[in-house]
Structure formats: structure tokens, C-alpha cells
Design a binder for these strands. Structure first.
Lengths: 215, 215
DNA sequence: TGACGGTGAGTAACCACTCACTCACCGGAC
DNA sequence: GTCCGGTGAGTGAGTGGTTACTCACCGTCA
């Protein structure tokens, strides 16, 4: 009940969360080195000193941001469910659609890139655990479909990287380099999936797509 | 002859060049904000004060780095020559091969990303003039091939972005996120080009330029 | 009372940048 | 040869401002 009472008020937790979200958008906007603790405090509406009451160092605050987010697990679950139906089109549309959905928050992409570039060990926490799993999962799906005779014989990992590359790069252009989209979101996803699946499918399998039952 | 004598020695030019190259690798490694002028001076083997004899500000030194490099023009010329032959395979192989050639220096890619993320106007100098032209050029080629009936009807700009995305993303994974290549460079390029061209070409176009049923 | 959320006013270290200065070298006058 | 003034490469020792981080202290509740 002490815990419940604490949870009911918890100004501390609120402060902590608002500090984390303020810091996240600032780090994403200007990088770790480019952001000062004073700015973070101002954005969260508290004094600079309070930042150091909650987080011993600036870097600890950075780590807390990454620890808070688990961005890909729900997508992985969704993909896994669709993947069982062997509807390739839906699988790839789901992935592409998730990665470049219209109102997506660019914060995490920027933070990921900054982490990787600024090169400290935090980038691994971010990238290593989440994203590599994702590439491997898609590569596994492609490998299965090759074995089933639906896809052409092609390196599954390269194919997975190629597809995610297409999509992520598009997001990169749009969100980081601010290149305009130039056509509706649905068309972008459709074009990418179409383009990619045509290259992946065996000519014969393309006619009756998704219904091959070869084991 | 005074100028000729000055050019014969030119310790100034040497210093300037070594400052630029020292700064380039430091900025690429740690970002603009993450690099101090003291470090740059030490890397170039001079005093910090001398840096400011050659460049009025740290940012001017950054600008000098970008001004020094013109990384894509020679590729564009090569592609333009091959493009006239209408050998799609060679065109795409040339682009992919250039972008992910084995010993490529990751400095400029890192610098480009840092510039874009740190968000100052210098990123535009870098990205705007060189890379956008490149996307447009490839999109133009794809549009021509669609008109000629060799490629399927697909958004040319999206297709261009998709292909460059595949390749650039691979480089990104390798150089920035240090993901191992896992197969020979030639195989990577071949797989990407094969995958992409299969998706782009009209099914019948490979054999003859006759009419094909659409969808 | 005292634990707790919160702060103003620091501190030492570090930042980009400046300045007064040294020194090697040069062409020319003697 | 040697003295000379001029020049430009190069530097040690700063400058003021900013940084991450600290600490004594305050008001408010249980």
C-alpha cells in the first residue's frame, strides 16, 4: 500500500518521465554533445540542479531514455502472426508501412543515428538488441519462402537488408534530410512492396501468389 | 616569380591541407560539437593558435572540408556514358559498386550524416548539390526506360530512391553500425542489382520488346 | 520534526578564440 | 660577408563565456 500510495502521487516519477522525454527530443535534435543539461532542465520546466537529483550524470539520463523504449517488439509480434499465413504481400506491407508510417516520430531514428555516430557503447544497447533481431527475422522468413519454392534462390540476409534498406532510407531522406515525399504514403508503400516482391518471387509463383503449399 | 617561389615551398598550403584532413577525420569520428580545436591542432601537429591563423572560426574549417570534396561528379560522368548503351545491368552495377566499393573511406558518409543531424546549413552544401542531382539522374534514366517499354510502369523517383536506399543502407550498416558483410563484395552488388532489376523489368521485355499483359 | 521535492549560487574544468611575442628567412644596401 | 628592416609561420599564455556537476538551503507536507 505504501507502493500504491506512492504510485498515486509520484511527483518524482512524473518529473523523471518528463525529464526523459525532454532530454530525448533534445538529444535527438542536437545530439548528446550538442545538448546542455541547462537546456534539458529548462525544457522540463525545472532547475538544472534537479536533473542531477534524478540522474547522477548526463550520460545516465541518456541511458534512461534508451531503457524506456522498446520500439520493435509489438511489430515483431504482428509480423509473426501474418507470416504464418504466407501472404508475402501483407508481410512486406506491414513492415514497410510500420517503418514509414506518416505521423511516425523521428525522434528515435535520429537518436539511433546520433548514438551510432557519436559511437559510445549506448548505441549497441539501442541497435544491437532490437534491430539485428529484426533483420534476422525477415531473413528467416525469406529463407523459408525460398525453401518452399515461392521465392527465387537469393541470399536471404542480403534480401532482408535490401528491403529494410529501401524503406529506412526513404524515412531517412524524409525525416533527416527533409526531402519531400512527393506522393501519398500508401503509394510509396505499395510501390516498394511491389518492386521488391516482383524481384523476389519466382516467375511461376508470381501468378498464384501466396497459395503455394510446397513443403 | 614571387608567386612561383611561394608555390614551390608553400608550407602554408601544406599546413592548411593537413589541418583540413585532420579535422575531417575528427569531425567524422566525433561530430562537430564533439571535437575541440585543441584536438584538431594536436592531430595536425601544430599549436591551437595556428588553427585560427588559417581559419577564422571552427565552422569555417568545417566549411573548408566540404569545399575540398567533390565526391560524385566523376561517378555521374561514368554513369552517363554507360547509360547511353541502355545496358541496365551495367548502369545499376556501376552505381551499386561505387557506393559500396570495399575500401571506401567512411569519412564522408559519417560527415554527411553528422552534418544532417547536427542540422546546420552546411549539410545542404553537402547533400543538396551532390546527392539530389544523383537521385534525379537515376530517376530520369528509369523514366526513360519505362517510356521505352523496358521497365514496368512504376514511380521513377521512388524506384531510384529504393535502389540507392538498398545500397546506401548496406553501407550504413557496414560502416556506421559495424555490421559484418558476411559475403563477398561482388556477391552483394550482384544480388542487389539482380533483385532490383527483376522487380523493375517488364516480364516479356527481357526476351522481346513486344506487348505484355499488364498485371 | 524531519523527510522530500525543489532551487540559487556557486565551482573547477573546459570551450572557442585572441594577443603579444619569437624566430627563421629574405632581398637589398654597404 | 654582414648588417638591416620586413614578413610570415608559429606559439605560450592568456580571455570571457560555458559546461557538467555540487551544495547549502528553503518551503511544504505527514
Amino acid at each position: 500500500m505504501k507502493a500504491a500510495a506512492a504510485l498515486a502521487r509520484t511527483p518524482g516519477r512524473d518529473r523523471q518521465a518528463s525529464l526523459i522525454s525532454s532530454a530525448a527530443s533534445l538529444f535527438a535534435a542536437k545530439g548528446f554533445n550538442g545538448t546542455t543539461t541547462k537546456e534539458i532542465a529548462k525544457a522540463a520546466g525545472v532547475s538544472e540542479a534537479l536533473v542531477f537529483k534524478y540522474f547522477p550524470t548526463k550520460r545516465a539520463l541518456y541511458a534512461a531514455i534508451l531503457a524506456e523504449k522498446a520500439p520493435l517488439s509489438e511489430l515483431l509480434n504482428a509480423v509473426e502472426a501474418v507470416a504464418r499465413t504466407r501472404d508475402d504481400h501483407r508481410v512486406f506491407t506491414l513492415i514497410a508501412g510500420y517503418r514509414i508510417r506518416p505521423g511516425a516520430d523521428p525522434t528515435m531514428l535520429r537518436l539511433l543515428l546520433f548514438s551510432a555516430l557519436e559511437g559510445h557503447e549506448l548505441a549497441d544497447m539501442f541497435f544491437g538488441k532490437q534491430h539485428r533481431v529484426f533483420y534476422d527475422y525477415l531473413a528467416g522468413y525469406i529463407r523459408t519462402r525460398i525453401d518452399e519454392g515461392a521465392f527465387r534462390r537469393i541470399d536471404p540476409l542480403l534480401a532482408a537488408r535490401a528491403f529494410i534498406g529501401m524503406v529506412v532510407h526513404h524515412r531517412l531522406l524524409h525525416e533527416i534530410f527533409e526531402v519531400p515525399l512527393h506522393c501519398p504514403h500508401k503509394d510509396i508503400v505499395r510501390t516498394y512492396v511491389e518492386l521488391f516482391l516482383k524481384g523476389l518471387q519466382r516467375p511461376a509463383a508470381a501468378k498464384k501468389r501466396g497459395l503455394t503449399r510446397v513443403r
